[in-house]
């Protein structure tokens, strides 16, 4: 098997082509991204922010973005860091001083982008969280539920949402978003 060592596995993203669009909403799969689940006490926030090049927000529901990199407050010692590129976030975090946990979850999660005037309504078909701008402003993020699936919602603009879920939940989440999008165009 001389060629075995040369055999390189390829990445497969079966949901990558998922798309649904109508006059009110477009739901589509986000491109693969690098993701880190970051856990740390308060003393490591500054060194991690500097190592990652993005400030770890310290208030609930907040996010901060620098370039292609966004850090989302998920819990008082938990952040979801997403880099839209192929950056090695693990390597970047490893350089930080202090006590923390960085775990690569680039493949654990996938994301859908929900955009359009009916985007919030689409999510509201299955999400009990108050998604009005008063309680979910632009730039906010929160872990919550979409029917039976746990998701992280990130509002990128008034009409654009990034919906993060575990990989095996993606067909279910897409199905819900499609139903929600259909109804968002009606009422």
């Amino acid at each position: 098997m001389a060629d075995a060592a040369m055999t390189k596995a390829e990445r497969r993203e079966p949901m990558a082509a998922a798309i649904f669009a109508n006059e009110a909403v477009t739901v589509r799969a986000a491109a693969p991204a690098s993701r880190l689940s970051l856990r740390a006490g308060s003393e490591a926030i500054a060194p991690l922010s500097s190592a990652l090049g993005v400030d770890l927000p310290v208030r609930p529901k907040q996010t901060s973005t620098t370039g292609s990199r966004t850090a989302m407050w998920i819990g008082p010692d938990e952040w979801l860091v997403i880099d839209a590129g192929e950056a090695d976030l693990m390597a970047a975090a490893r350089g930080a001083e202090g006590i923390f946990s960085a775990v690569d979850i680039s493949h654990r999660n996938v994301a859908f982008l929900v955009s359009g005037t009916g985007a919030a309504t689409t999510l509201a078909s299955a999400c009990p969280h108050d998604l009005r701008l008063t309680s979910f402003p632009v730039g906010a993020a929160a872990r919550t539920l979409l029917a039976k699936a746990e998701v992280v919602l990130w509002r990128q603009s008034e009409t654009e949402w990034h919906v993060e879920c575990w990989r095996s939940f993606a067909p279910y989440v897409f199905g819900l978003l499609r139903e929600g999008a259909k109804d968002a165009a009606l009422a």
């Binding site: 029917a147 039976k148 095996s168 939940f169 067909p171 279910y172 139903e179 929600g180």
Partner: peptide, 18 residues
């Protein structure tokens, strides 16, 4: 409402399941 058929419950499949 939506919770019937494929959306009745989450059906989780591995990446090898296909």
């Amino acid at each position: 409402n939506h919770g019937r058929g494929d959306l009745f419950d989450v059906t989780r499949r591995t990446t090898i399941d296909g």
